[in-house]
Design a protein around this nucleic acid. Structure first.
Lengths: 169, 169
DNA sequence: CCTAAATATTTTGACTAGCAAACAATCTCA
DNA sequence: TGAGATTGTTTGCTAGTCAAAATATTTAGG
């Protein structure tokens, strides 16, 4: 009957688990969740300006600046002023950073991925479509709460990556 | 074929959405995610000692102390030394806190809940069981990573609430 | 060409979250 | 009664987070 309660409880458990996971990450890899996010983004997008990076990870520019500060100190990322537009600072991931990404975060997903791969094909498909449905509804929720009119909102509900490197012109 | 990628992407989207949601919470309700967690726990469990509370929310005692400090300043929770064992400090939620809980966090889930309720019965069931499956696998992951042998681990994989009030003897 | 507005980043200031270690109060049990 | 265990708070440190101010650069008008 009261499916709503069930779905909220399940969701809370998922959130809780990711929370603990992120805590575990800090301990084992000495990387925080936002630091990891930034590094992954830089790996996928190449050298991009701090502002674009901030948009990607949904943090303020100031916050990203401070995260980059720390990652730079650890040599996992670097900074370079754009030659085309000297206001821009391009952030990029270093070889050390790539190395780190290869080891650290995989560990975390390992067990989950393994268990998932043991599931039947139909179960995998079911879970994926359910998760996508949930994500979509949660995205929409976020858009609902948005203070301004956002015409492109509906388009964005489906996953849309832009794997092209940032065009620094 | 590569369902693993799909499930990780979907999961990341869900996590991302909850992240944005939590940020939205801070802005609209001036409550942070951990503060909300603490208040919800106190609502569900009644007056419990700080240590028990810390266990529930998986934070250190010291951290919970500081969160309670802030919530107490806002009058959302209170403290009371246990009469039975004067080492213990019982935290409880105030009427103001209950009020706050009634308004603030519901708003956030509103849109999601509404959309969910529009789904077909079978879809709801499917989503719930998928989410439970995922939560279970993620819990197990956490248990895998646990540094010590934990005999009770398997029992705990199914949701088990203890709605009984804390027995302060 | 020069200046005002727009753009991009960093700095500053002020919180919150987190934890470990030290400390204080209280309880337990021999 | 007194030593060790339990429970909470305090202290000291790191990180995340943002808004607002400061800085540097580019662009658009005149």
């Amino acid at each position: 009957m009261d499916h709503i309660q069930d779905v909220l409880v399940a969701l809370r458990r998922v959130i809780r688990a990711t929370d603990l996971q992120s805590k575990h990450l800090v301990k084992t890899a000495s990387l925080t969740a936002p630091q990891l996010m930034v590094m992954q983004t830089l790996r996928d997008r190449g050298a991009i300006p701090v502002g674009a990076l901030a948009d990607e990870v949904s943090l303020s520019q100031a916050t990203v600046t401070s995260i980059i500060d720390r990652l730079e100190k650890k040599q996992y990322v670097g900074r370079e002023r754009s030659k085309q537009d000297k206001r821009k600072v391009l952030a990029f991931i270093t070889d050390e950073g790539l190395d780190k990404l290869k080891t650290a975060p995989t560990l975390l997903q390992e067990s989950f991925v393994r268990q998932f791969s043991y599931l039947q094909e139909w179960e995998q498909t079911m879970i994926i479509s359910a998760l996508q449905r949930v994500a979509q509804m949660m995205d929409a929720q976020h858009i609902d709460a948005s203070p301004f009119l956002d015409v492109g909102a509906l388009d964005r509900q489906t996953e849309q990556r832009t794997p092209l490197p940032y065009d620094d012109k």
